[in-house]
Design a protein around this nucleic acid. Sequence first.
DNA 1: GAGTTTGAAACT
DNA 2: CAGTTTCAAACTC
Length: 756
Amino acid sequence: MDVVSPELNSLLPDEIMDTEAIEDVPHSQTDVATVKEEPSDDTSVPMETDTPVAAESLSLSMATSTATTKTTDSVTGTTVSTSGLQKLTAPFTISPANHQIILNKVATEAAKSGTPPQVIKQEGQKLLVTTIGKSGQPIVLQLPHTGGKPGVSQASGDVKPQTPQFKVVTIDGRSELKPVVGSASNQVTTLQAQQLKAVQIAKKTPVSSAAPIKFIITKTVNSKGFLFLQPFPCHVLSGRVLTQNSPVMPQRTITLSEPHSMSIQSIPGKKIAISPLKSPSKVTVVSVASPTSNTSQKSVALPVNVALGQQILAVQQSTSASPVKVATSQTTTQNIKPVQSVAVGGVSGSQFKTIIPLATQPNVQQIQVPGSRFHYVRLVTATTASSTGQPSGPSTTKPMVVSTGAVRMSVPIVPAQTIKQVAPKPLTSAAQVVTTTQTQQRLIMPATPLPQIQPNFTNLPPGTVLAPAPGAGNVGYAVVPAQYVTQLQQSPFVTLASSSSFPAPTGIQTQARLPLNGLTTAETTSRPRKPCNCTKSQCLKLYCDCFANGEFCNNCNCNNCFNNLEHETERQKAIKTCLDRNPEAFKPKIGKGKEGESDRRHSKGCNCKRSGCLKNYCECYEAKIMCSSICKCIGCKNFEESPERKTLMHLADAAEVRVQQQTAAKTKLSSQISDLLMRTAPVISSGGGRLPYTFVTKEVLEATCECLLEQAKKAEHTHQPQAEAERMILEEFGHCLMRIISSAGKAKADCASINC
DNA sequence: GAGTTTGAAACT
DNA sequence: CAGTTTCAAACTC
């Protein structure tokens, strides 16, 4: 699996327009995203795995949401409609191999495939989703200009679907494209701080076990169109996500209530739970359908709270290699399976729906990002069970492999519940998630088969992401550290899907470092955690700081480490054990005070006996907080009036100041050097010749000195004051330098002309 | 870098 | 819940 790059968010338009009409786009379209054709052996219609009969649609509706994206997949083709797309600048690539959608894939990749690169552009809002035609013809979905201004919100409550302007285009120029079914109701409401964008792509349930792929992406954008990746706050989820799968039930509904803008993604037939993370974090959820599942998926209800400005990405993948189709909940000329729907903010409608079919391969590669905690994401295994779903339509049916770019979810996840329906529940203030500019991204990737362990989401480490375990109808969870996704940003070489035939999108490298919301990745990423040195705990006990902080071990010095995705099963068990022992084991020990840091205190208090609580053995002291009444320490010197503590603090402050000064000095020096190099660089590059100072030969130097001496004599003869004399000399020196530089330039020009 | 100290976590 | 053991980080030399 490929990880979505941070720019994926940027790709999402602020506004998405629904389109019902399909327009053919010339093959020469330059703005089209590259689509890779995926040969589909499966002539049968790819359908959702979880629901045999009814297609599932996921819809997210938020009072504050401003953008809506909808994707529909009909038997004959795949249709994606989006609304509010504003910023689509990154290439969007679909990889046939894994049925994955790759976002931000480098253009070179597309070029390699021999297909024209697909680019989603914000301006034209042309491309949203591409599918690969069965015939090998890529399909390009194109969105016409909405005319709406980005960031412009419509009056809340406006559920009036916009006119579908979404275009589906095949590379070969044929209009075989699938009718855009189901008009996405586009509801735009005024965003207080951010705008929500959700894109949902629903796919019809495959008749055969062939891989139905569903892909849901929701995205939240602030008023500036920036996407924020933020850790999940450990808040209670008030909303519920309902993903129950029933052959009888045509639709699945996930309801999310959020007072603020939010985005939610749900995957039909799969369960996705997003657990609360650190407040500013965002979560990306990717669910993968199990290849072997042939039965209806278990219904799961997930209460979900979406934080303001947070973004959620849910990706559902079917394991089968069959072509993926996207179908909207609305009727189309073609058979469409029921789709799961997710309603947010109590607003009904298909708004903010994004379903993206993904490759079914559950390959997972460990990606770790320092500093963050687990994201709790509950992934629902898509069942590939043979469903009553309509057989694949005409030859136009196109298998689709999609890997999406990074998705952000800022939704605390409540323990999943088996609920068929979730009533829209307005988010309470308590459920609010604070949105920050943090750019961390979360990715949920397929996990190895997991035992039926359903950790208490409320107690999971912040930032944990649960990935579905492949299996028939089984819902597995893979707890993925929030850093997982972030690491992708930092480590472009890491791919989520090892099996993916696609090379890791190189675009992630550069894109990952692109400033998001004015902050660079480095700025927004917490500092790397110290590597652990565990030898006996397998990094699966709280002794291990990595594990205790909900992180995978990365670049650690540990031995026999099980704190990675390769040992997800063991890891899950360990987490469960810890939670059984202490439900708050993964919660931060240092609780934030109500008012500032002064109120911060250790949740349990320390038990120091010999350190006087003035060494880092003491967790209170280590956290730079004073011991409190709940501490059981002996001989504590870590209190306000403690002279020892003050002395240590002063020393520490002084040391810190020195370090900062040194750092600042180094930074300044480095900057100066860089600036100098930058100034000289043009000379080098332009002329390719010698630098000006290389012309300062001995003769030139002597001549310069003579000029300066002459100037000094002149000042002396004219009885100029010393200051004036110095000024004259310096001025002359400046002239000399200018002449040297000028001569150097001329010499280079002459040389260049001669060479020519 | 090796050894010691320390206190949280785990265990009984 | 208390006592003991285990463990890895912090610390010292």
